[in-house]
């Protein structure tokens, strides 16, 4: 029992059965065919999980193991026999007898187009995964024309839903705009935002439940925003940085990383990443400490850890400055 046990307790308590979590409810097995190969997975599994079981690498952007699938990026679409449209592998549950193609020409066309649409409108330079996918699907975003110049600060935030300026034909519309820097811990570079909803989910019910940001606007003007685009410092933000943790493109970034990149000193080849435990409260969160030149440059947390599921609080994620500041 907690608190004080009797000091005269001399005999160790006899060991009983090992207390463990109750086993998950047994699930039926569903058999289906993917790319001509048969696979059996538990009922309720997704096509993505089934494909992974076969070692098929399905590209994803808005999917992350620790978030509820929102299936908005559509890069994971696959072809399911007798389905009028392609279906998102990340969220579509397996059904018995499904016949799935993950690399048909139809699939490749849609994946290529998703990449081209994003790369022609968003700065994907800090999304390394993206470059791999582009090569794999032969994406040539230049087909849509040269990128339009960046919008002025606040211009995209002022868009009226249901209205836009007619295109003029010379270039392809983009989301490029100045970086938002309103605090010392992290920056928001929405030129790099593919609106994958991950940050909103991490700020919302999937982790932090603070709801400081949401998707605002509509259509191409859809964007991640605080209420009325107020600075983070006026918003509900508690600087847990879990949005940075899930951002797939570097749109959300530690200010330390952003500043080093600006200065040209950021060099991941010179960095180490070491797992340790947070020094603050007694929860015991695993921190991955990223060190370059004997200085901590950022802190993340592994997704597959039972304590954090990849999520931290402001102290764990940012409270390491004192280590760098010691002489």
């Amino acid at each position: 029992m907690t608190g004080e046990s009797a000091p005269d307790l001399k005999i160790p308590v006899p060991r009983g059965p090992v207390p463990v979590a109750p086993p998950p409810r047994p699930r039926n097995t569903v058999e289906l065919t993917i790319d001509g190969r048969s696979v059996a997975v538990p009922e309720g599994a997704t096509l993505l999980e089934a494909a992974r079981q076969l070692g098929i690498d399905t590209p994803t952007l808005c999917y992350l193991e620790n978030l509820t699938p929102v299936n908005v990026c559509r890069i994971c679409v696959v072809e399911v026999e007798n389905s009028r449209t392609l279906v998102p592998a990340c969220s579509r549950k397996v059904e018995p007898g499904m016949v799935v193609k993950t690399d048909s020409e139809r699939v490749r066309l849609s994946r290529r187009m998703v990449l081209e649409l994003l790369a022609s409108s968003v700065d994907v330079s800090t999304a390394p995964q993206f470059q791999d996918y582009m090569a794999r699907y032969g994406a040539t975003p230049e087909r849509f024309g040269p990128p339009a110049p960046p919008a002025a600060a606040g211009e995209r935030d002022a868009a009226r839903p249901g209205h836009h300026h007619a295109p003029h034909g010379a270039d392809a519309a983009t989301v490029h705009q100045p970086v938002k820097v309103d605090n010392d811990l992290y920056v928001r570079d929405y030129s790099k935002c593919i609106v994958c909803y991950k940050c909103v989910e991490a700020c919302g019910t999937d982790a932090q439940n603070t709801f400081a940001i949401a998707v605002a606007g509509r259509g191409f003007d859809a964007r991640i925003s605080t209420e009325f685009d107020v600075p983070l410092t006026d918003s509900a933000c508690v600087y847990c940085g879990n949005c940075i943790g899930v951002c797939p493109t570097g749109a959300l970034m530690f200010k330390s990383e952003h500043d080093m990149r600006q200065a040209g000193t950021w060099d991941e080849t010179r960095q180490t990443a070491t797992d340790t435990i947070c020094a603050y409260c007694g929860v015991g969160c695993t921190l991955t400490v990223h060190v370059q030149d004997e200085k901590i440059v950022k802190v993340t947390s592994p997704l597959d850890h039972d304590v954090t599921h990849g999520h931290l609080c402001i102290k764990g994620r940012f409270g390491w400055e004192f280590v760098n500041q010691r002489e």
Partner: peptide, 27 residues
């Protein structure tokens, strides 16, 4: 223009695709 204005913006093919479609037709 109508579809570009009325796309909810959630999924990439429609959010950006309707923009590109309008641009193409304009060109």
């Amino acid at each position: 223009q109508f579809f570009r204005d009325e796309s909810c913006g959630q999924c990439v093919p429609c959010r950006v695709g309707t923009v590109r479609q309008e641009e193409l037709l304009h060109r």
